[in-house]
Write a protein that binds this DNA or RNA. Structure first.
Length: 353
DNA sequence: GAGTCGTGGAA
DNA sequence: TTTCCAAGACT
């Protein structure tokens, strides 16, 4: 492989064809950082409006460092993988305090920031600082597995290192930012997972998989096992003043620190789901409530599990102690809180709007 | 190394 | 309808 002509063909194509994306307007390390966190496991089209709004609300490291976490989560509502933004704010606080607000350009320092793994570190170092560091994501592994005919299973974490080594040998030292972005852009636009557009590919002449006619066999990727089913009861509980009870989820684990309607995981074919929920509610809040009939059912699919949500309406009997993680709010005030999409569905279907 | 952690779109 | 994701990181 002629590395120089590969770099030239790839980068020339990128300079002609790169998409006009909001995070490509400049190379501000903070903006690059935010975009890379948002883009983790998330489509470009999904990220665009979130990125624009997020930077309007939190235009600088200082603003984000000082922002209220509930407001930050609200800006992330619907994007998923919510620990990303809590880690981002945590790391931004560290940069604000420890590095005087300047995103470090040292590989070890930047990789030590919360939420910044090998890919994101390389992306920031190359895109914002022009350093020839590999930024190996799913696109890069797919593209290079074809070009270099690499048959290792890209689902295995250890495989990423093989591609990092490959990139170190291929990356342009003149334009490392464009080189890394070009590999990803190629994966997104041309060298797609199924039916790659090889006839339009700018580096077709360098591609060993195309030469051998095996581009559809690569990359090798073992499939993940399917989700486990979880039965849930969620209750929209109102007090005598028609206020709705919401609570903040635990600070770790699934949907951490988001708000929700009181919920409980239940076991089918045991006591009635209504009975299980009322008992759980009393143990949790020391308050009685009555549940009506089930008003609906919602299935919500996560990466690793499926919630089968049984939706009930309930009435509070007695006073409940509000606190930082437990509130009674009017229906119009619900929009001020960040809810998971599963509970947004409940709001839409059973509370109107 | 394998499981956890979201969502909406495409094949 | 089902499957597989899409610019991963953390435990």
């Amino acid at each position: 492989m002629d590395i120089e002509s590969f770099q030239t063909d790839l980068i020339d194509w990128f300079e002609m064809e790169m998409r006009d994306l909001p995070w490509r307007k400049d190379q501000d390390p903070y903006k690059v950082w935010v975009s890379e966190i948002m883009l983790q496991q998330t489509r470009v089209d999904t990220v665009i409006p979130y990125f624009t709004r997020f930077l309007e609300k939190f235009p600088s490291i200082e603003v984000l460092a000082k922002a209220d976490e509930d407001q930050v989560l609200k800006a992330w509502e619907g994007l998923g993988y919510y620990s990303r933004v809590r880690n981002l704010q945590s790391a931004v606080k560290e940069v604000h305090e420890k590095y005087a607000g300047q995103v470090p350009d040292d590989p070890n320092e930047i990789a030590s920031l919360k939420g910044v793994g090998p890919y994101t570190a390389g992306a920031i170092l190359s895109i914002a600082y022009g350093k020839p560091e590999p930024a190996v994501d799913g696109n890069v592994m797919r593209v290079l597995s074809r070009i270099l005919l690499i048959w290792d299973d890209i689902a295995k974490p250890s495989t990423r290192k093989i591609f990092e080594t490959a990139v170190r040998g291929l990356i342009s030292h003149e334009k490392p930012s464009y080189f890394n972005q070009a590999l990803m852009e190629l994966g997104a636009l041309i060298c797609t997972p199924t039916s790659p557009s090889c006839l339009l590919c700018p580096v077709r002449d360098h591609c060993q998989a195309f030469e051998a006619g095996v581009q559809n066999e690569l990359p090798v990727k073992t499939k993940k096992k399917k989700q486990r089913l979880v039965e849930m009861v969620v209750a929209v509980v109102k007090d005598k003043q028609n206020r709705i009870l919401i609570r903040k989820r635990p600070e770790s684990g699934l949907l951490a620190n988001l708000w929700e309607f009181p919920s409980a995981e239940i076991v089918l074919g045991y006591r009635s789901e209504k009975e299980q929920f009322v008992d759980h509610f009393h143990e949790t809040y020391q308050v009685n409530l009555s549940l009506g009939d089930m008003v609906g059912r919602i299935e919500h699919v996560f990466s690793h599990l499926i919630w089968n949500i049984h939706v009930f309406k309930g009435e509070l009997h007695g006073d409940i102690q509000e606190g930082p993680g437990l509130k009674l709010v009017k229906a119009e005030e619900l929009e001020e809180y960040a809810f998971p999409v599963s509970h947004q569905k409940i709001i839409k279907q059973y509370l109107g709007v």
